[in-house]
Design a protein around this nucleic acid. Structure first.
Length: 906
RNA sequence: GCGGGCGUGAUGGAAUGGUAGACAUACCAGACUUAAAAUCUGUUGGGGCGUAGCCCCGUGUGGGUUCGAGUCCCACCGCCCGCACCA
């Protein structure tokens, strides 16, 4: 028999599947339907090994569901709009569409080699005018339903490139290309009214039983429902038009600890004051010279500007508080104004200490643990709201109560006394969808001097992107494209201008799952097909999408439902969600100047060496795996450059030579630092190309590797050794199958093998059902070990080997088909029904119980499975170890957990 | 900064609150071979002792709950992900 040759087998079976149409989704009312979807990729040009892991997982589910008698929908497409295409266009003078289409073609060819059970007849890209045309028509539907509106919002503005920057294009407050300091600028932009659904999006999380808890928690925190008090501080000597400052607080119980009022630089009062206060104007301008990312604001040093204005405390009009304009207060949150209570908020405390403002505790720990109060230099005291505390300056409710009770009491008190009202607010902001870019879905509205903002007529959709554009001038090409931009008003027919903003790419990915149910429909969805295929039974993707993509999709499904594009049951579109971990790979970086050097970039003491190091680092911050020799020494991963090793005449095979080289490099500061488990990226030179792996070992090996070892939700480290091991095992499986087929026809059975087979069926099935692919793989290793050693005759071993092939088929479909054919399986293994475990074969007659004495294992006994608790206890007490421990006395307590353990307490 | 997660042998990891280390990698030893590769077999958490056996320690660190904790609770340390214009 020839060795198994993946390079011949894999294309053969891929062709066989395609010809038989095995993976074409078909409605079949005799079967339950199953819709499995993996997050579609951005067509960056190359599939990376992380994609392989994502799609291999989805494929296991899809193939398993097919084998268990489901009508399976398993589609694939392309999330094709986005910034990288425009960046490529600018850098290389090419067109974003050409670049994108080329990348799609490349990646589709790479997909084909993986042997995934995808229904390619449903493929589309979000940059297809057909797809984005339907998106435009839904935008108009949403507009009619009042789910879209316009308002001002700030963007990152690059004053040199005269363009809007994405957050990722801002580095240390500067534009990534121009290096200019970024400014915040207000533009009128389109928003989806996702905030209308805040409560529903939050409460419906409870119905998502098959979503990871962590994702639901993250979404709940993001939506951020809070109950608080909204009230106003009256201004002393109020300037024109501003007699009060509205604030919202979630901690009204700390009102008597207030020491200042802070307002956003964008607050109307701040804006008015800066008119005739140049210092304040300068301060506010400084605040606006910051990126829009929340992270930047939060990390920035807290700064304020004393306006000189004062407000009266609502409980005591003689008590006045200063009003600051502060850089950490966002106009978008609450009312754009807060009161600061330094004793119970770390940020307010930092601010108060900086500006010498009073710090007054309103409550203290119920149990004095000796730590200093905030007014005595201690940390801000912010206990969980469920913890009882002593109110030293409370004004409502009991002296000792929880934060929650005190807040309720405070709101009630304030309402009774007419100081304010209790309100529920959400952190969730409306979804700004406008992007000042070319490569996205055009927003289908027209601006007319006479009629205002008018939606495009549906019969004119899609509003196609013009193809004749160039990227040699900064800014959005749509803005300067007169023949595209100038268009008659759909309402009055007079000359008007198209909206030149395009949509956020999150819009594209918020409904693709629905389009897959009827990709050719003349409307966004075909109601009948959507009713059949929705919901997505299993959605699989990266945890990095835990909040935005999934929240936006949940919103979109609701909005689509209200416009008649999705059935009621699809308002919550993903029944089950699985978030898989990344595939990582260690990186080899320059010790002195690479990242991860603990941030301590020490000044080198040896000037000559440092210069060399600098020269190298300016050329290479990272090294390719093939340019280094990596090794482990005293539990540390180390690496040296092949070049330096060779120059020094050292042997790369000799560990001592390697260690010597490493020491020497240390002294000359030319060392290579190994950082394990780094996210793959081109710039870090640690990307593993699936193509290379498939060339070397075949797709089955790549698939088997990414599914083995690590639990799917956790990151997996790509190692050459791991891939090698996967390949070896698949070779062994093939030899086991051959041996079974060649075994003498003795008719000899093997009871142990049969039991192992049924256990394997059970455990592998459980593993797949519960996304424990790594444990399924481990079980298959164990089964292979037993089968390999079996002395049974041909029939028994063939049956076992065929079952093994079936159990492996969702993971290694090509090899499994080959074995299936070798062992006389009927038709394609992909169509064969999933094997069933016989429950009778799973139970053991006897169990071995560990005997513990005071929780430590001291002996074990083997007893019949059905033995009574009393008998087990007697047997356990009779063991030497227990007798020894008892020393003639009697046990204090004996715990018998049937079938599990016996614990004797002495 | 805020929110979420993770931490177990040399390595990836397994373990409904019930024998920690399944399965695999790596290493070592053996078989086969002129040799190597491939393949097959076996050993391997650390330490100790009176070494057919037994004892002690051990799941990032420190506490706690429990007859019993890798698992639950609290605090800390380290790493990873998200933070609304990357996708």
């Amino acid at each position: 028999m020839p060795r198994y040759d993946a390079s011949k087998s894999e294309p053969f079976w891929q062709d066989a599947w395609a010809r038989s149409g095995t993976f074409t989704a078909r409605r079949d009312d005799a079967k339950p339907k199953y819709y499995v979807l993996e997050m579609f990729p951005y067509p960056s040009g190359n599939l990376h090994i992380g994609h392989v892991r994502n799609y291999a997982m989805g494929d296991v589910v899809a193939r398993y569901k097919l084998a268990t008698g489901h009508a399976v929908l398993h589609p694939m497409g392309w999330d094709a709009f986005g910034l990288p295409a425009e960046n490529a266009a600018m850098e290389r003078g090419i067109h974003p569409e050409g670049w994108t289409r080329d990348n799609i073609a490349n990646m589709k060819a790479q997909f084909a080699r993986l042997g995934l059970s995808l229904d390619w007849s449903r493929e589309f890209a979000t940059c297809d005018p057909d797809y984005y045309g339907h998106q435009q028509s839904m935008f108009i539907d949403f507009l009619e339903k009042g789910l879209v509106y316009r308002k001002n919002a700030v963007v990152n503005w690059d004053p040199v490139d005269m363009t809007v920057l994405a957050n990722e294009q801002v580095e240390d407050g500067r534009g990534w290309r121009s290096g200019a300091l970024v400014e915040r600028r207000e533009l009128t932009q389109w928003f989806f009214k996702i905030s209308d659904y805040s409560d529903e999006l939050l409460s419906a999380l409870d119905t998502l039983d098959n979503w990871p808890e962590k994702v639901k928690t993250m979404q709940a925190n993001w939506i951020g429902k809070s109950r608080g008090l909204q009230f106003a501080f009256g201004l002393v000597d109020a300037p024109e038009g501003h007699d009060r400052i509205e604030v919202y607080t979630t901690r009204p119980d700390t009102l008597l600890g207030a020491s200042f009022v802070g307002i956003s630089p964008d607050h109307p009062l701040a804006r008015q004051l800066e008119q005739d206060n140049p210092d304040l104007a300068a301060f506010s301008a400084e605040c606006r010279k910051m990126g829009t990312a929340e992270e930047d604001l939060e990390k920035a040093e807290k700064r304020g500007f004393d306006t000189g204005l004062r407000v009266r405390h609502p409980f005591d009009t003689a008590w006045e508080l200063p009003v600051y304009v502060a850089n950490f207060i966002l106009m978008d949150y609450g009312t754009g104004a807060i009161f600061g209570c330094p004793a119970h908020d770390a940020r307010d405390l930092e601010f108060a200490r900086k500006y010498g403002l009073p710090v007054v505790s309103t409550f203290a720990p119920a149990k004095d643990d000796g730590s200093a109060l905030p007014e005595d230099g201690g940390d801000a005291y912010v206990p969980p709201k469920t913890e009882p505390v002593i109110y030293v300056r409370g004004f409502a409710g009991d002296t000792e109560q929880t934060g929650n009770d005190a807040i309720d009491a405070a709101i009630a008190f304030c309402e009774e006394n007419g100081v304010g009202r209790g309100v529920t607010k959400f952190r969730l902001r409306d979804w700004g969808l406008s992007r000042q870019r070319y490569w996205g879905c055009p927003i289908p509205v027209v601006h007319c001097d006479a009629c205002g903002v008018v939606p495009e007529r549906k019969e004119n959709l899609p509003v196609r992107l013009p193809e004749d554009v160039s990227f040699d001038i900064p800014g959005n090409p749509l803005d300067r494209h007169p023949t595209w931009r100038d268009t008659p008003c759909p309402a009055c027919g007079k000359p008007a201008r198209r909206e030149t903003d395009t949509m956020d790419t999150f819009v594209d990915s918020s409904w693709y799952y629905a389009r897959f149910t009827s990709p050719g429909a003349a409307t966004p969805t075909d109601p009948d097909e959507a009713a059949y295929w929705m919901n997505v039974d299993q959605y699989i993707g990266g945890v990095e999408h835990a909040i935005l993509h999934l929240l936006y999709s949940r919103f979109f499904a609701r909005a689509m439902n209200e416009c008649g594009h999705l059935p009621d049951k699809a308002r919550e579109p993903f029944d089950a969600l699985f978030t898989q971990g990344m595939v990582t790979h260690e990186i080899y970086t320059n010790k002195l100047f690479g990242p991860g050097y603990s941030g301590k970039k020490t000044i080198p003491t040896n000037p000559e060496a440092s210069e060399k190091a600098w020269i190298r680092s300016s050329v290479e911050k990272f090294f390719f795996p093939e340019d280094v020799v990596s090794f482990s020494h005293e539990g540390k991963r180390m690496a040296v450059l092949k070049d330096t090793l060779e120059a020094a005449g050292r042997d790369p095979q000799n560990i001592e030579d390697l260690v010597d080289q490493e020491r020497e490099d240390e002294e000359t500061e030319l060392g290579v630092l190994v950082i394990p488990s780094a996210k793959m990226s081109k710039s870090k030179k640690n990307v593993v190309d699936p193509g290379t792996i498939i060339d070397q070992y075949g797709a089955d090996t790549a698939r088997w590797f990414v599914l083995s070892d690590s639990p799917p939700e956790r990151d997996v480290e790509w190692t050459a050794a791991g891939a090698e091991a996967a390949s070896k095992h698949l070779g062994r499986v093939w030899r086991i199958a051959e041996a079974a087929s060649d075994a003498p026809d003795t008719g000899k059975g093997d009871d142990a093998l049969l039991r192992e087979m049924h256990k394997a069926i059970h455990d592998v099935t459980m593993g797949i059902e519960s996304f424990g692919f790594n444990t399924s793989v481990a079980r298959l290793y164990a089964f292979a070990n037993v089968l390999q050693k079996s002395q049974a005759g041909r029939a028994a071993r063939t049956q076992a080997a065929r079952t093994m092939a079936q159990l492996m088929s969702p993971m290694t479909p090509h090899l499994s088909e080959e074995i299936w054919r070798l062992l006389g399986g009927e038709g394609l293994i992909a169509n064969a029904p999933w094997p069933q475990a016989d429950p009778a074969m799973l139970v053991e007659d006897e169990v071995t119980l560990p005997i513990q004495v005071n929780g430590k294992r001291r002996a074990e006994i083997t007893v019949p499975k059905e033995m009574s608790k009393e008998d087990v206890e007697a047997r356990a007490l009779a063991t030497d170890a227990v007798q020894k421990a008892l020393q003639g006395g009697s046990p204090k307590k004996v715990i018998v957990v049937p079938g599990r353990i016996v614990n004797v307490v002495v």
